[in-house]
Design a protein around this nucleic acid. Sequence first.
DNA 1: ATGAAAGCGCTAACAA
DNA 2: TTGTTAGCGCTTTCAT
Lengths: 325, 325
Amino acid sequence: MVTINDIARLAGVAKSTVSRYLNGGSVSAKTKAKIDKIVAETGYKPNTFAQSLKAKNTAMIGTIVPRLDSYATTQGLKGIDEQLRAVDYQLLITNSNQDIQREIEAIYAYAKQKVAGIILFATVITDEHRKAIDSSKVPVIILGQQADGYHSIVHDDYQAGYMLGKYAVSLGHRIFTYFGVFEDDIAVGQKRKQGILDGIKPNGKIKIIETTFAIEAAYQKALQILPKMESSYVICATDNIALGVLKAAHELKMVIPDQFSLSGFGDYDVTTAVFPMITTIKFPYYQSGVIAAENLYQLIEGEKIPEIIKLDNQLVERESTKRLK
Amino acid sequence: MVTINDIARLAGVAKSTVSRYLNGGSVSAKTKAKIDKIVAETGYKPNTFAQSLKAKNTAMIGTIVPRLDSYATTQGLKGIDEQLRAVDYQLLITNSNQDIQREIEAIYAYAKQKVAGIILFATVITDEHRKAIDSSKVPVIILGQQADGYHSIVHDDYQAGYMLGKYAVSLGHRIFTYFGVFEDDIAVGQKRKQGILDGIKPNGKIKIIETTFAIEAAYQKALQILPKMESSYVICATDNIALGVLKAAHELKMVIPDQFSLSGFGDYDVTTAVFPMITTIKFPYYQSGVIAAENLYQLIEGEKIPEIIKLDNQLVERESTKRLK
DNA sequence: ATGAAAGCGCTAACAA
DNA sequence: TTGTTAGCGCTTTCAT
């Protein structure tokens, strides 16, 4: 293993000079050239542990995700990864498995590990979260939920819901059924829903069904609900839920969009792989990852960034919705 | 920040004693109790960088995945994560984005970072891979592809293909079309295909179409192929490909399984969310992650593990295939 | 611009 | 069982 001492010896300088060379201190062009050469020849890489031991942080950024197997997560991670690679940061991932306690622990663990920054894929922000974030002096960016006092990047769920509601109403629909999720989830369970409600008001009437994020659960629920449903439009809180409803409809021999229109949120890949292709709202998941990483980097570098960034969504109209005659 | 020196001073012992206490060396019960107390009071946590600086490795294990957004990846990662958490290892993830060069770099980077072990989600193992693995003295487990001389965990792709071939033939089918992928991918492109070929031989005739892992590509390809196809059974190398074919069939108003049977590999979630639900081969992705993590841990602890572990697959018969009349 | 020297927090001989 | 003593590879004063 080649160390800074070797380089110093081979270059005929003091190791402090090499250190300065490494860290952008003042080194003469001649010395620099000399060290450049030695470094190239030896393939020397500074030991990051020795570096981190003194410098009080590392070139790692930690992410905390509620689950690995969701479209939003993987796309966001992809965006983050791409950016981080560019600035040579190592990406750490902790899967909390939707367990709040694990999220908290992860924050403390990251702090101890002296990560340069943390990106939290949030579903809720509790006081414990706040405590953990505050006590560790690490820059944090919260992705997916808004939290006063913290830097966050959110998909504008209210706007998304509102846009969809308006769209559905514009198609002539008046009676709706909504397959939503529990309200603990601020973004999806509350804001998205509220947007929808406001979007169809005062023209529409809506019946609210609560289910989970799982396809299967939505499918089972839909199997009960659909037969006696009177709505002409079913709004689902996510594309997976829409998928479950679609399947149930198929099973019940109900034809979409003839018997009722159906739409989801998310623009998951599969929405175009099924028939009918599902109308949905596209959230820029990948882009949110990119922005999160960029902003975190700014934050680490001590620059100012806006406290909250809202990303715009986009209605993607496909085959599962149609004008009510 | 409280250090080993503080603990030593407060406990009235030498810091080497504290170090021994930390690392399970011989310490008297009395001293241990004393240090226990101080540690609890101060909330002392050893500095991992200082530890890693001396000890030649860390409590991190590195994974290298070709992509984040695949079912196999997320399930495998989930299994690994679960196991690693139990033994208090930090999970590192590098997304190579299907770039061989990045994989190689990641191995070197991990070695330099002194990870305790590496799990490589492999598509191919090149000489460069071998060189990288050999030069870094880190225990490595290869997931998904077999590589002589290295520890690997594989889904038995040949067996999977063979099983499916036999099944299709048993249903009375004789003329097949296969939507496969390039042969660079040993597991899917070669072994799985060979299994299928052997499974239908000598009863069947098969036409081979090459596409990619993307739904869209398969869909486009199928749109060309299906209209003039004479096969009664379409075998797809993955469920995503099957999804693409299914969509094309729908578009072409071809009814599955009446006009032709269709099956995939992988048992992705969506195979049950579409109509007809797709017959497929279920690979134990999650379990393979669990086993990879367990074995890697054994390896790190210096125990012996079998060089190759083959995991069994399972045929999941659903609605997209039927007996040929 | 450069070098000498003193640590960072910990581990690991070696002696006692 | 315990303490003493060198470092691990690097950064950072402080002189020069």
